[in-house]
């Protein structure tokens, strides 16, 4: 029972809107929750009077599962909603949908939405705490937090560490949130991928671009490999997946040929044989499964810290 701390924000809309201190506070808290989820009884009663709605207007398996587990391990009441089975299909607006759900006395909203900025819009119209679980190609803050947390666990403080993000940077909300988060923690970030999948003005964020995968891997301490998001590509950006795999796929041989040990990460789901070969994904370089475990701890920390800013009833 000591030093009282608080996040600087009421919502987690994106890494862009939080401070470095917030990130450290989330990490500190997540460390404690990681201990909780490794106990035989993986549950604490902190949020027993809080109701959380998970609104997923876009498909998700692991993020939804991870949030739901985090909520249940904090003893919150949980309601789930996915657009495929809802009145959104009948033409209801986002604000109406959410206001209807909030009238049932929901305290916090975890939302994934295909439109970038949907959370920001919502945060100006409703009272509940909003957590962004992915908005289009914009941000996916909890993923970036768990990535940085996992890196820190493996290689220590991130200041001046070199992180390479490989793959479909243009369509990736994970890439953008990662860039914001890693830079706030003082790391150096480069991206690597085919020119058609690198956004034009990336230099404005202070990020360098490397088109040669081998050079990029040689430079970095950690490689965060992203999935090719075919579902977001309305036109063809790459000739074929096979060609992509040949130039930007990482396999064990490539890793063994490097002068140093690097850490390999992937936010999932992996397309085995495309961006990562099976022998690389399952090698000792990879911390992919630790990322998933840390995901629950990070989400518990975010929910806990935001809920505590709500004040009494």
């Amino acid at each position: 029972m000591s030093t009282i701390q608080k996040l600087s924000t009421k919502h987690l809309l994106g890494i862009k809107y939080i401070t470095e201190e917030d990130i450290h506070l989330i990490f500190e808290t997540a460390k404690n929750f990681k201990e909780v989820i490794n106990r035989p009884i993986k549950k604490v009663p902190s949020l027993r009077d809080v109701t959380i709605a998970n609104l997923f207007f876009e498909n998700s398996t692991r993020t939804k599962l991870s949030f739901e587990l985090a909520e249940k391990r904090l003893s919150a009441d949980v309601v789930n909603f996915s657009s495929s089975s809802s009145s959104v299909k009948k033409g209801e607006s986002l604000l109406d949908t959410v206001n209807n759900i909030l009238s049932m006395k929901v305290d916090m909203v975890v939302m994934r939405h295909p439109a970038p900025g949907a959370h920001f819009f919502l945060s100006q119209h409703i009272d509940a705490n909003i957590i962004n679980a992915g908005d289009g190609t914009h941000e996916h803050p909890t993923q970036a937090l768990l990535d940085a947390f996992s890196m820190k666990e493996r290689i220590g403080k991130l200041a001046n560490k070199k992180i390479l993000i490989v793959g479909d940077i243009m369509h990736s909300r994970v890439a953008l949130s990662n860039i914001f988060c890693l830079q706030k923690l003082g790391a150096k970030v480069k991206v690597c991928g085919p020119p058609t999948l690198i956004p034009k003005n990336l230099a404005m964020l202070g990020v360098e671009v490397e088109y040669d995968l081998h050079k990029g891997l040689q430079w970095c301490d950690v490689a965060n490999v992203l999935r090719i998001q075919l579902e977001r590509q309305d036109i063809k950006y790459i000739p074929s997946l096979r060609e992509y795999a040949q130039f930007y796929g990482i396999d064990k041989k490539l890793l063994d040929n490097l002068d140093k040990e690097i850490v390999l990460m992937h936010p999932g789901p992996i397309n085995r044989g495309v961006e990562l070969s099976s022998d690389a994904a399952d090698s000792h370089h990879s911390i992919i499964l630790q990322q998933v475990e840390n995901g629950v701890a990070i989400r518990m920390a975010v929910l806990y810290l935001l809920a505590s800013s709500r004040g009494g009833n």
Binding site: S2, I4, Q5, L305, S308, G311, G312
Partner: peptide, 8 residues
């Protein structure tokens, strides 16, 4: 939650 700020 009845406190102003959360405990660490």
């Amino acid at each position: 939650r009845s406190r102003e700020t959360p405990l660490k």
